[in-house]
Amino acid sequence: MTMRVEYHPVLGNLENQRRITIYFDDQAYQAYEGDTIASAMMAEGVKTLRYHEVSGKGRGVYCNIGHCFECRVRVNEENIVRACLTPVSEGMRIHSLS
């Protein structure tokens, strides 16, 4: 089930969203253009974005505005980015860190 807020009594409805495909840990997911990595994964019900480097416990979005770095992920094999500040793009390959 999608977690998208398609209808909103004040903000209006989502229309004509362009769908793109992204890959998280090699699995394909649908995203909307304009999503951040964090919102795209949240919409798909994926809450865990990385594993704590010492305890191995799962972590996900905490602040959603770039302050906590809990959502950091690796994109396209090299860059470590904050999922909540990084827009998705077609074919983007995202990897959880551990």
Binding site: M3, R4, V5, L11, M42, K57, V61, C63
Partner: peptide, 23 residues
């Protein structure tokens, strides 16, 4: 620290800006 726990502002932005419900 469990995934699915977030600040109230994080949920606000998820819902109103990105139009995604965290749950």
């Amino acid at each position: 620290t469990l995934p699915g726990v977030m600040t109230i502002g994080a949920a606000q932005i998820m819902g109103n800006v990105h139009r995604v419900k965290p749950g």
